[in-house]
Write a protein that binds this DNA or RNA. Structure first.
Lengths: 343, 343
DNA sequence: CACGCGGCCGCAAGCGTTTGCAAGCGGACC
DNA sequence: GGTCCGCTTGCAAACGCTTGCGGCCGCGTG
């Protein structure tokens, strides 16, 4: 367990070769350039000295860093930790590490951490912060950075992405409620500047159509952000329209929690008076009261998939861009029930 | 918005000075070594060229990286994201970034990510993974790395740390329950290899003593980890002893959720039959059913404090080590009530 | 007037790698 | 036997920055 840093020259000296040769021998990609016996000697020398190449020096030369930047709107949103885990696990298995940054949905801040990471020579980015039209992303594209999107996508198909089939998810929710006998459905949507917001809204519309139900424009509201407060605020509005809806398809679990609050304020019970279905099936949402029916998908998997994509992209900047969409499923819990009599 | 990378030589050329001088001018610490007029000229040149120093090159030379490694047992445990936020916000404000790694409570894995970060030249570490006696930490200490602990501490006082006064927290819990009239209290403790486990246990004992209550050894159990499963398992055991306890002081909210499950299995109600108080007041724990009474403290603040400490340590490796303990408070919700008649 | 000293700045040697270039060395081929 | 070629390997120049050292210049002092 040598305390002093052992460098390439040390192993070269021990193996009796020039550092350049040692470098080639150590690097799998260039190993074929050196005689296999000497390569072997170098490998052994490296092993006995417990040589760890200095990634910083290597970065300086190669302009790569085996690091990818991950931009998250807010890590305390329970949706993201499992995604990050998926990313990290996948990257770690391949010798990469993740540099995490929160943006708080703030453009300024996003730009700052983006530039910070970039100057730190990250090889690529995974963004969970995409808006449908995103200035940062345009710049990234023209600079030919390796960027992939997770959870949210952009309108243009310029970036690889890993996300869930939002429309399908909402469709499942509508079908479930329609099956229970609901006819008067509301939609509490997310910000329409986000792909998740519009996708889930479109899915709601499509689902209503296939269920043969009419959508009442008064029963559609959009939140400005995915938060409990926004959920409560918009839900209050929705509850004011009469006749009242008997169920609401909500674009996100946090918004749904807000709905719970609004219902309680209004003296309404869930699911007896109003059914609620959320989206994301976020951790612990099965423990709230009542346990929330929600559209589920594996957060971990979209994270891992995003990591896979970014590595692919790093390896070949001009690989075809692939967008993968996980198929969601509805997990039915106790926030949905048949509509009240006369509803 | 120049696309080509602008280097120090570029700004030096523009300012008409030697790159070395430019370097000194740009670096606040060495600025006094250069004439203030030329310094000004260099600054302006840097500004007009939009110069961003290459941190990698700087790292190579200085062996510093403005990066700190953060080791987390498991990011999907809701306790940690707010801590990480606190760390990142504090670091970001000072030009540092955080390299996050999960260890899954696995020594091997911890060692790997630790070494990975170290070779990437991180300036310091914040560990949320400390066990009371921790081999990794011993090595770190002898290598004189800047290491601080967050949430958990070690037995030796060799490391700065930011955490909560665990004993006091349990004490508050006991006092609250005693005040409600409970006499037969159980303790579901955490792993005794962790400072949080023993601290909360000690606090329980002390609290019982000051409340003038006897602790029944049969009513004390320790979980092997902070998970819902472990909570349910140990709670089942606890509920088997007779006469039954009327309240249990639980070392962690996840364990408490497990208790909820165990109670439900046993056909017991919370709080009518058994009161439960948790620890951490983790996000969304106010939304479970019943809302959990829990020992609260600011996760964000211990994160930020840890960040402050690690920067302090980086600046002066031999600064006195300070351990700061936040004072917790009990937030009373609906999982606690007076004991049942005859309890 | 000589000397010393301090302020400012240029010089160049790195930090630990990677990599284009070229040289040495056999062997094959004519 | 000479030429050419391919395989290995050494050489040295980067990558972009920091920093010890020393030089230059101007001024104060004895």
């Amino acid at each position: 367990m040598p305390r002093e840093r052992v460098t390439l020259r040390d192993v070269a000296r021990l193996a009796g070769v020039h550092p350049g040769t040692a470098s080639r021998a150590l690097n799998a990609a260039t190993r074929s350039l050196v005689n296999s016996e000497t390569a072997q000697r170098v490998l052994e020398a490296a092993l006995t000295l417990d040589f760890r190449p200095n990634p910083v020096a290597r970065s300086l030369k190669t302009r790569r860093s085996d690091t990818v930047g991950v931009l998250i709107p807010d890590l305390t949103n329970p949706l993201f930790p499992p995604i990050v885990r998926g990313i990290e696990d996948h990257l770690a298995a391949r010798g990469y590490v993740a540099l995490i940054g929160n943006t708080d949905n703030d453009d300024q801040r996003e730009m700052r951490v983006f530039e910070g990471m970039r100057s730190r020579q990250v090889d690529g980015f995974i963004l969970a912060t995409a808006r449908r039209r995103h200035p940062l992303l345009l710049r990234a594209a023209e600079d030919e950075l390796a960027v992939v999107l997770v959870n949210r996508v952009v309108d243009s198909h310029a970036f690889p992405s890993a996300s869930v089939d939002d429309a399908r998810g909402s469709g499942l929710a509508v079908a479930h409620l329609a099956g229970l006998g609901h006819r008067r459905l509301a939609h509490l949507g997310g910000p329409q500047a986000l792909s998740t917001g519009v996708g889930r809204y479109q899915g709601f519309l499509a689902g209503m159509e296939t269920a043969g139900l009419e959508v009442d424009p008064a029963l559609v509201a959009f939140a400005d952000g995915f938060s409990q407060q926004e959920g409560a605020r918009r839900c209050r509005d929705l509850l004011r329209v009469s006749p009242r809806c008997t169920a609401v398809v909500v674009a996100n679990d946090l918004l749904a929690l807000g709905c719970y609050a609004a219902l309680a304020e209004a003296g309404l019970r869930c699911p007896e008076d109003v059914s609620i279905v959320g989206f994301n099936d976020m951790p612990f949402i099965d423990r709230v009261h009542p346990p929330l029916t929600s559209v589920a998908f594996s957060h971990y998997r979209i994270g891992a998939e995003a990591a896979r994509l970014v590595l692919e992209r790093i390896a070949d900047r001009h690989a075809p861009v692939t967008a993968t969409f996980l198929q969601p499923e509805l997990v039915v819990r106790q926030s949905t029930a048949p509509p009240p009599r006369g509803g």
